[in-house]
Design a protein around this nucleic acid. Structure first.
Lengths: 339, 339
DNA sequence: TTGTAGGCGTTATCAC
DNA sequence: GTGATAACGCCTACAA
């Protein structure tokens, strides 16, 4: 087993000092031609690589980014992560991921684990529980320590930092508008329980669109579904009780479930029921009929978040200036709507 | 901005030595009651946390695990990652993820980035390109340096290390057997180009099952599809040219595409065409009809991989003993097959 | 041109 | 009981 080689080894082997080796490997002008060549040759031979940890300790820079997301199985977060990872890697950064599992406690624990020197900055989306508790002390502590933080998608106004979001309200507005313009009159909304964070903005857009187009808003047409509903389907009863000719869903899963339920009941899509879902993921693309979706451009979001973070990390200037980047969502039309 | 507090700060503030502070915070018996209490009080007040990097340097242990996967958007890898992350976090480890993007070069670069002290061990699945090139020097270098390595799913016999896989050959065999027993006679296989790695094992199982059941094996019924085919669909022509009443797909995406193509052509599922796909992901669960799938138990795979790795990392004994853990795939029956 | 010394933050050993 | 010292691996200002 080849043990990891250090400057010290090389120095001893050539009977020079450690600092000479260090300088030689940086091609410093101070060192003489032949010593330099000898050292570089040996370093190559042994395949010397500086120890990242030692460098981190010295520079107080880890070149690691901490990413905390509620869930990695959901397509949207996956794409954001992909964008972060891509940009970060290009800039020589590694990405440490922690999954909060929508739990406040896990979010706190993960942040504390990483905040003690392991990373140079955080990129995160708030867990559902955190949004409900409205407790952001763990975020504030981190920013007070001067660790840069970028929030994306699930953000809060209570913490002052850089943010990246999509125009949720407007996107929902436009989606509903599209439905109305295609002749739909009674439009339902499938959203999350206590519609937290982004869902509430989407609901705002939904209601505004109805009002602007002089359609009555019927609270009955808003269905709140449990966060992670995998098995039981409350929506069937909903379909039977109320009549509607279109539905906007705050995520892809809700949309697909709605579609399946409708199909099971013999409802024709999109003629009798048009569907639009947020998140333009694999499900939307590959379902049949394929699903018209609000693309959130997760990849781009991730890239921008990473860019903002690295910018902050690498600028030593302390002047606090934060911005919120808004990404335009776009509607991808497919078979589940009339156009 | 509260600067990060160190032992030194506390020592200076209380006018004691650094080592006294260090010991006091570890509740060492050497230190007197009152000094200890004073120190601990101040540490709590300032919310002192030891610097991970310094500890890593000292211990030569980072408590980080490096994970290198070909792709994070694919459901299977996502679930494996989830399993790794979960187990690792429980054991106090963080996970650094790098995506190789199916590229050999990126895989090498990522490994080198992490191998210089950033992590205690690797968990990885080989990129497609690596499997084709059959070049595993980057893996061998890592193991020669004594860095533990666990390969999962996409493995190679050329590297000696711990491995976790599913019984791909057998799983494919059982899937085909199930199709045959339900009365199907002409069974197609949709696989990846040059069917590398796992795909070739699945093909083996496919052929063996046909032979065992005295069905003719027709090379024409094997369709090789490009690795990441998102847009164009070669399969339509295939459907027109050959006749078959069932198909086994080496992944979920291929299965859904096959289903869509069949539906477009008016073929009834499962009566006229039964479909089974590998990977029991969201797509399989939520498609209509829902898809019978070979569950690869990614979560469990990830947990086991993490367990094997951490075991190796934490055992200082050098005796080299490696094992290959095989997880039983199970078939989840749904609407796309007759049963 | 090369080497020495100090420091990044922590811990362990040994001396007082 | 408490503190000085060295060490982890690297870098750099300064001395020789």
């Amino acid at each position: 087993m080849k043990k990891k080689i250090t400057l010290k080894h090389i120095a001893k082997e050539l009977d020079v000092s450690i600092s000479t080796v260090s300088k030689a490997l940086k091609n410093s002008e101070e060192i003489g031609r032949d010593t330099k060549e000898k050292i570089q040759a040996i370093a190559k031979l042994y395949n010397y690589r500086p120890n990242n940890i030692a460098i981190s300790l010295k520079n107080k820079r880890t070149k690691n980014i901490g990413v905390i997301i509620p869930d990695i199985v959901h397509h949207f977060f996956t794409t954001v992560f992909r964008g972060i990872e891509k940009y970060a890697n290009e800039k020589g950064y590694n990405v440490i991921v922690c999954v909060s599992d929508e739990s406040f406690d896990k979010e706190v624990i993960n942040m504390e684990m990483l905040a003690n020197g392991s990373i140079d900055g955080f990129i995160m989306a708030l867990s559902a529980e955190t949004q409900m508790k409205n407790d952001f002390n763990h975020l504030k502590e981190v920013t007070e320590q001067g660790i840069p933080l970028v929030l994306f998608d699930r953000i809060t106004d209570d913490v002052i930092c850089d943010k990246v979001i999509i125009n949720d309200e407007e996107a929902a507005y436009n989606a509903v508008k599209k439905l109305i313009e295609s002749g739909k009159k009674r439009i339902a909304l499938f959203t999350t329980e206590n519609y937290l964070g982004v869902s509430s903005k989407r609901a705002d857009g939904y209601f505004r669109a109805l009002k602007d187009h002089k359609l009555e808003t019927d609270e009955n047409l808003v269905l709140e579904l449990p966060f992670q509903f995998e098995k039981e389907d409350k929506s069937e009863a909903f379909f039977e009780r109320y009549s509607f000719d279109a539905v906007l869903c705050v995520n892809e899963i809700f949309a697909i479930r709605a579609m399946r339920t409708a199909q099971r009941m013999g409802i024709k899509i999109p003629q009798e029921l048009a569907i639009i879902g947020f998140t333009d993921g694999i499900l939307s693309k590959l379902s049949s009929p394929s699903l018209t979706a609000v693309a959130q451009h997760g990849n781009r979001m991730g890239e921008i978040a990473a860019q903002m973070l690295i910018e902050k990390v690498e600028s030593d200037q302390e002047r606090e200036s934060f911005r919120t980047e808004i990404i335009e969502a776009t509607i991808i039309e497919r078979e589940s709507t009339i156009h």
